[in-house]
Design a protein around this nucleic acid. Sequence first.
DNA 1: TTGTAAGCGTTATCAA
DNA 2: TTGATAACGCTTACAA
Lengths: 319, 319
Amino acid sequence: MTNIKDLAKMAGVSVTTVSRVLNNHPYVSEEKKNAVLEAVKVSNYHKNINAVHLSTGKTLLMGVVLPFSDHPYFGLLLKGIAKQALEYNYKLVLFQTDYMESRELEALQMLQQKQIDSLIICSRTCDLSTIEEHLPFGPIVLCENIKGNEVSTTFVNHYNIFVEALEYLYRKGHNKIGYCIGRRSGTNSHEREMAYRDFVKKYNLLYKPDYTLDECFYFEDGDKVIKQIQEMDAPPTALLVTSDQVAAGIVTCCKNRLISIPDELAIIGFDNQPIAKMMNITTIEIPLEDMGKNLFLQAVNGDLSNEELPAKLIERGTV
Amino acid sequence: MTNIKDLAKMAGVSVTTVSRVLNNHPYVSEEKKNAVLEAVKVSNYHKNINAVHLSTGKTLLMGVVLPFSDHPYFGLLLKGIAKQALEYNYKLVLFQTDYMESRELEALQMLQQKQIDSLIICSRTCDLSTIEEHLPFGPIVLCENIKGNEVSTTFVNHYNIFVEALEYLYRKGHNKIGYCIGRRSGTNSHEREMAYRDFVKKYNLLYKPDYTLDECFYFEDGDKVIKQIQEMDAPPTALLVTSDQVAAGIVTCCKNRLISIPDELAIIGFDNQPIAKMMNITTIEIPLEDMGKNLFLQAVNGDLSNEELPAKLIERGTV
DNA sequence: TTGTAAGCGTTATCAA
DNA sequence: TTGATAACGCTTACAA
């Protein structure tokens, strides 16, 4: 495998000159430049990027931590990140964690080892303190509502969104409202629970623990939700579903079982994914792609900021 | 940032000894080992992995090229790859191409530059000759039915699968059969078209170009399919749909429009994703996760092989 | 069991 | 405009 030294010999110049040509630096005569370029061509030369990294201390690699790569929520977020990455000439290193802390630690370790320049954590399992410990090694940005810390964040306000959606359902006459989430832990889930509890308190409703349905990630989980609801003696009349896929699954299942929507059960989805539009599902639009873009920018620039992006209720046919 | 030299000084040993300790090599006295470990701890030392890469010529990084990261087909494939990667202590570098050749070339370039050790291309846009040109720089494996070449491949036989499915529908009394695919180009699509044409010829059926519906990727594309079908003067009575998501979208759309399945329209999906089970869709099971695993193994080991994995018809309620 | 020193392939500093 | 040469931080013969 030819290297820069070989090129220098072939072109009859110094390695410095070769490096200059390779990196488009000024102060190289046209003549020598062509000689180098010619040598590159005939030798089929390619830079060893690892040497570049070692020398420059940069990798143009950004890590992205997410629990599942096969979920549309993260798919969309990733899309936004990837778009910016392309523009900035960065490559992405994916860490699919399945919510296992050990996988997150691997990503943090790669940051320490300078294998990646910075890290975006789309959904976190490890402690915030663990994150902070790794901050000296490079920018880490989070996708959750945390402010005034050392970490940059981009997020939507899930508390406000939840309150807004609950109030909307309440105005429509519902007072038995349940909600579906992915996992119970995590900042987002915590915010939602707070919102729900505050809502229940405000209107003097009964707080029922089983109105909170967890482990709802995919379309097919809709089945499970309906099953669980039907076993209750006082099932909710409306459901806040934090994923359009799950909402779509619920709607489908209801059609199969001849449960009328929204009469017997009202549904509000989340994200405003294409599937929600197709199935005419009322949903909360989350600007996932924009969030991805913003996360990337925070990560490359390494500047500390906490940015809230707006969400919006989209009224359709399931409420 | 402390380096191996600093550690050596701190522990009162040579850099070699430090390196030995760091890599668990034998022939280090317990005493010196502890001294080094202590130095590592107090200095909060972390290897610069780029130096390791430069020195060893390896990166433990594998590239994965796929068109969309937000599609369940590739999600499942990726899952299989990721599982093996974990076991082999490899990290994955993701290249989301949106079927743009330039993105594929970026991946190939990273292979040339030794930034990744090997490359898995889940779906290809560039020429096979382009792939072959890059083979000297590291293993490249493909997920399509190509044999006897320089490249390793793992695939299912889409020709046979299609024939089998078409025959099955024919036996069930269908002779106006259409099919939905993603893109028209690519080895898989080509195989399917061949199978379809051969089937049509075998049974002396009329070949109708508009029975081939392309750009079907997601659930929401089901709508489009039904719309297109309904505009035909002689619409197909059965559809082979190369993605369970799209099949599910079609089934959903049919329910909305009171088109009876399978009486008015029979559907066969592909992949046997969870959504197919939930919606009781007859489908062809493709061992995507296993394929992912196999692709990874071929890529790490760098041995040349072409492996066909079996697919299986799963009879459910849509035919 | 330990250490010296020569790579690995770049970039960057400095002098010419 | 050019070129020596010293980093960058690690691994690994080879010698002791």
